[in-house]
Design a protein around this nucleic acid. Structure first.
Length: 645
RNA sequence: GCGCCUGUAGCUCAGUCGGAUAGAGCAGCUGCCUUCUAAGCAGCCGGUUGGGGGUUCGAGUCCCUCCAGGCGCGCCA
């Protein structure tokens, strides 16, 4: 459809440009509200009406006759207050769409795109908030790759921060555990740390004197002194593995895990600091509350300064982030060492290190960078971009995209289900923020297990004879589909108030509804094969246009068929739209609407029972087309595709 | 106080660069399984798009203002 539209625009523009003051930009093509009015609508008569001080309808009537011989268009019509509606040649369009299934018409715009997402502190289990982040980031990556972009997925690991420190403190000082003791905790290490971290947080609140010990641990970790450093290393590596397993369950993976420890060890910050000082992007504050700190000013907030280096000469979080961002664009003049960390589905996930490695790989050096981080960090993300701008990397600053989204909070109902004690004050609120510190949240694996359990029951009901292994596999796919769709169906600025009942739903606008639609199509093809020996290779012979004719279809079926095909044909535009607006709810909605339309069609038009071969063939081709597009879109959303369910 | 975001059906949310009659799901009610999987389909019910003003051929969408809510504005990360 994108090809066709561009082609039409060019033709129309050439037709009218000499007689009318119009730019190619102003030549918009939209959809019509109903196909009876046509398939595509031209809106430029409104623009011209304004410029020529004429009624849009008049302009449209003047121009429409000149557009009679557009390629692929069978009829034009003036409609409403001044639209020119185009009716496509349905058969020709359908055949072209079928042929173009194997050749995407999208093309890349960037040299290399880096996406940073997930970024969970390696000191506790992943929760639903992290799942939203990962689903958004992963879907962005999938869509960009589909578009043809070279994409690198990075998952930043803050393995030397205070959150890890707190767990080290918990193990050493509260639990008196040695490295060996900790290594023996094998079951659900991330869950164990979740609880420990909560205990440490409340302990620290009541024992302010422990702050000293905490600072000592942080210092020892940063300087590599044992036992703190080894403990921190073991804990973070163990937790990262747990996170990667969790994410693998929902089909999310990474190329590289850049670690804060490497950024410190390889002195990335010192290099970045030097650059920033040279360009006078940061300066030493001489007076006021920030006296003795190196600070940065924001372009549009002149009165504010952000501390980058503290008066004790340690660097803040945002400072390290600036160094990392500079590296991502390949502008730091320093690089990490890389070690293989994990094999996942024949794909190596690499981790950075400050110790030399025999592997020579290139990471980073992107021309466009997306940072998928929730909207609470938009101020800091602005500071990061400001850092680049101050270094005169204006293009890179502009291409530092903060993919911002709202957080996931908890409904009062879900709090009850978690048996989490809440105060009077908290009870009054409509929702409660997830808090790792308080241990308040729905763990990702818990949610996935509940989804799988429920899905398994549903599979049991319908397919009791399947072997247990198969049932579990299907249940897993359904759980993953339900979760991923749930995380994508909301616009990114919409706060998700998490509720178990809603998240565990498999009916209506949910992932399983989409999967079910596909299962229905699979089922038809399978029955065609079983009962009639139909092979999919036969499709190519059906495709030869001489055999395709829409004529035998009833007028109603002609329209229903056409509505379905036309809607489906927009899928590439939907992908571009989603990527351009960073709004995957568009893609989710498109997929859902497509399934709704298909299910309506499915109920009206039988394939196996159809006696008329010509009609049957058209229907087979139609569901084949829908199936192929559905598979593509589900794949982009990371929703698995069970054959049966 | 300043900045960003949000306000659409009983509830949860869509709504393309400003385009034709504001759409889904859930909940409620009515039908439809000897037919290709009822995780479905068809139908009913449900709206002063937070209030007011403006811009124009046209506003849920853009501008101003007011109201209500959320988040951010650390020498935390």
């Amino acid at each position: 459809m994108t090809d066709l539209k561009n082609n039409l625009k060019k033709h129309i523009f050439n037709q009218v440009k000499d007689q009318y003051p119009l730019t190619l930009q102003e030549l918009g093509i939209t959809s019509t509200p109903r196909i009876q009015m046509g398939d595509l609508a031209l809106t430029f008569p409104f623009v011209l009406g304004q410029k020529l001080n004429k009624k849009p309808r008049e302009v449209a009537s003047e121009i429409a006759p000149q557009l009679s011989s557009l390629p692929g268009v069978s009829k034009t019509e003036v409609a409403g207050p001044g639209y020119i509606n185009l009716f496509l040649n349905r058969k020709e369009f359908f055949i072209r769409q079928l042929h173009s299934l194997s050749q995407p018409s999208l093309s890349p715009d960037e040299e290399k795109i880096i996406i940073e997402h997930t970024n969970i502190n390696p000191n506790k289990a992943a929760h639903i908030g992290h799942l939203r982040n990962a689903c958004l980031g992963d879907t962005l990556g999938r869509c960009l790759r589909y578009k043809g972009e070279q994409v690198e997925i990075q998952n930043y690991i803050d393995d030397t921060g205070v959150q890890v420190v707190d767990v080290v403190f918990g193990f050493m000082d509260l639990e008196k555990k040695s490295l060996k003791d900790i290594q023996e905790i094998d079951h659900r290490f991330d869950y164990y740390c979740w609880d420990l971290y909560t205990r440490v947080s409340s302990y620290l609140e009541n024992h302010p004197e422990a702050q000293k010990r905490r600072s000592q641990i942080l210092k020892n970790i940063e300087e590599g002194k044992d036992p703190e450093a080894s403990l921190a290393h073991h804990i973070s590596r163990h937790i990262i593995k747990a996170h990667l397993r969790t994410m693998e369950r929902i089909g999310v993976s990474y190329d590289l895990l850049p670690c804060e420890s490497s950024i410190l060890g390889l002195k990335f910050w010192e290099k970045a600091f030097q650059l920033l000082k040279e360009k006078k992007a940061v300066y030493l504050s001489q007076e006021g509350k920030n006296q003795g700190c190196w600070v940065m000013k924001l372009e549009d907030e002149e009165d504010k300064e952000k501390v980058i280096v503290r008066s004790d000469s340690t660097v803040t979080y945002v400072g390290k982030d600036i160094a990392y961002q500079i590296w991502k664009f390949g502008l730091l003049d320093k690089d990490f060492y890389y070690h293989p960390f994990l094999e996942q589905n024949h794909h190596t996930i690499w981790i950075t290190s400050s110790t030399p490695s025999s592997h020579s790989l290139r990471f980073g050096g992107g021309s466009l960078v997306y940072n998928v981080i929730d909207n609470r960090q938009s101020y800091l993300q602005k500071v990061v971009a400001q850092g680049l701008k101050s270094l005169n990397y204006r293009v890179q600053a502009q291409k530092s995209i903060h993919f911002s989204y709202e957080m996931v909070a908890l409904s009062p109902n879900s709090l009850k289900e978690l048996n989490f004690p809440v105060s009077e004050e908290e009870n009054q609120k409509d929702f409660l923020e997830v808090s790792g510190r308080k241990g308040l949240g729905v763990k990702a694996d818990d949610l996935l297990e509940r989804l799988e359990e429920k899905a398994l029951k549903e599979v049991e009901k319908r397919n009791p004879d399947f072997p247990p292994e198969k049932k579990r596999d299907i249940a897993h796919k359904i759980a993953r589909g339900a979760l991923r769709y749930f995380m994508l169906k909301y616009t990114k600025n919409s706060l998700i108030v998490f509720d178990f009942e809603e998240a565990l739903s498999f009916e209506g606008e949910t992932g399983p509804y989409l999967q079910y639609t596909l299962v229905r199509i699979h089922s038809i093809f399978q029955k065609l094969k079983e009962r009639e020996g139909f092979e999919e290779e036969n499709l190519s012979s059906l495709l030869s246009s001489s055999q395709i004719s829409l004529a035998p279809l009833s007028p109603k079926e002609k329209d229903d068929f056409w509505k379905l095909i036309l809607y489906a044909s927009h899928f590439e535009e939907e992908i571009l739209h989603a990527v351009g607006s960073m709004e995957f709810s568009h893609l989710a909605k498109f997929c859902f609407n497509l399934c709704q339309k298909f299910n309506g069609y499915y109920h009206l038009y039988s394939i196996l029972g159809e006696k008329n071969e010509e009609i049957k063939n058209i229907r087979i081709l139609a569901i084949y087309y829908i199936r192929e597009i559905l598979k593509k879109v589900l794949n982009l959303m990371g929703i698995p595709q069970p054959e049966k369910m």
